[in-house]
Design a protein around this nucleic acid. Structure first.
Lengths: 105, 105
DNA sequence: AAAGATTTTCACTTAAAGTGAAAAATTAAT
DNA sequence: ATTAATTTTTCACTTTAAGTGAAAATCTTT
């Protein structure tokens, strides 16, 4: 499922697959944790988006991490997270690089 | 303040310095986020403990991270965190190394 | 224009993080 | 050793982030 590189899927299908409410995906979008492609207002989630969201769920559910921590790791260019995070999401946090550099001082 | 390498300080003083309730420090201890030295039941926080706790507060308050995420980063031997984390706290999570190795698979 | 789907808004639930207060136990002082 | 002062522990409460339900608003499509 969701194996086709070039296909994209509507929010309700993705939410069901991940076992969350579609509202949760809208919620993540407010934090720029995911940026699904759009045609008009309608969202289309790519394979990469879905794999990333699966990883986000694992960090949050299995590991007990929170949203902000995931964002902090994106900003810090953390290896483990960056490995799975779609480029456009990483790019959303480009302007935060300065803050990351000063992290902890 | 708290500049002397070999001195140690009672919980109430440390809590006040950090701007938290002393109950918060007991709470952190339940999660093994800090292991103050003890003489009998009384806790004594070292300079290293206090600097670590300051960093923990920064991660949680400034960055919005949660407790579990900090623990995940200790387990993962994250550079930024390990740099500030006292060895005895790191050691508390030694037995979790295997899980870290399998992280994300 | 009507039916069906998607998005948006409002308000609610849940769980983690943190705290207040008082009882119990220790430590320190006389 | 007995009392006074601290510290620890327990219970229950508050606050906030994360997540959700339901309905209204906005498309889409036929």
């Amino acid at each position: 499922m969701f194996n086709e590189e070039d296909k994209s899927y509507p929010i309700e299908l993705v939410a069901e697959f991940l076992g969350v409410n579609s509202r949760t995906l809208y919620y993540y979008e407010k934090f720029m944790l995911v940026c699904p492609m759009r045609r008009g207002r309608k969202r289309y989630y790519s394979k990469a988006d879905i794999e990333w969201l699966e990883f986000v769920r694992e960090m949050m559910y299995e590991q007990g991490m929170n949203l902000r921590s995931i964002i902090v790791l994106i900003r810090r260019r953390d290896d483990v997270v960056l490995n799975k995070c779609p480029q456009d999401v990483v790019d959303c946090y480009k302007n935060y690089l300065v803050r990351v550099r000063n992290f902890g001082e």
